[in-house]
Amino acid sequence: MSVYFDDGTVRLLLGDAIEQMRTLSDGSVNCIVTSPPYYGLRDYGTQGQYGLEASPAEYVERMRQVFSEARRVLADDGTLWLNLGASLHRD
């Protein structure tokens, strides 16, 4: 686990979302706030980054994997805040 910030009440993890969540116990998270990269919008220059999958279907599968793991770690009374929009992708 790569802890970016922890004040005893709030802990922020830094790294690949799936890898970081895999370090957490089932039902151990009260709140998840996320804004994943949109498909094909930006290249952040990072190997394996989200949003640069080869097809929209692969992007959706990657997001499914992320949110499957998020559901596993989210407490029964937890909340997940998602900021996800659409953009026009032009080649």
Rank of each mutant, 00 (worst) to 15 (best):
F5G: 01
T34E: 04
C31G: 04
R64L: 04
R72Q: 00
Y4G: 00
L52Q: 10
N30Q: 11
D26G: 02
R64V: 05
S2K: 12
D26W: 08
F67P: 02
G15R: 02
A54W: 00
Y59F: 14
L41D: 08
L13P: 05
L12I: 15
L82R: 09
Q49W: 01
S25N: 13
A54S: 15
L82K: 09
L13W: 09
S35H: 07
G45L: 08
A54K: 12
Y39E: 06
D77F: 09
E61F: 05
S68W: 11
S2L: 11
Y59W: 00
S28V: 08
R42K: 15
E61A: 14
Y38W: 13
E19W: 01
I18F: 01
Y59I: 05
D91R: 12
G8F: 08
E53Q: 14
Q20G: 05
D76I: 03
G85Y: 04
I18D: 01
Y50N: 07
Y44C: 02
E69A: 13
R11H: 01
Y44N: 09
P56L: 01
F67V: 07
V73T: 11
S2Q: 14
P36G: 12
R22K: 15
D16S: 06
C31P: 00
D7M: 01
L13I: 08
T9F: 08
T23Y: 11
R62Y: 06
L88W: 14
P37R: 11
E69G: 05
E58K: 10
D91A: 13
L84D: 01
L84C: 08
V3T: 14
R71M: 09
W81P: 01
V3I: 15
A86P: 00
D6Y: 04
Q47T: 12
P56T: 01
I32G: 04
Y38T: 04
G27Y: 05
V60Y: 12
P37F: 09
V60A: 15
D77L: 03
N83G: 02
L14Q: 12
H89F: 14
V33A: 10
E69Q: 15
M21N: 06
S68A: 14
D16G: 10
M1H: 12
G8R: 03
G78N: 07
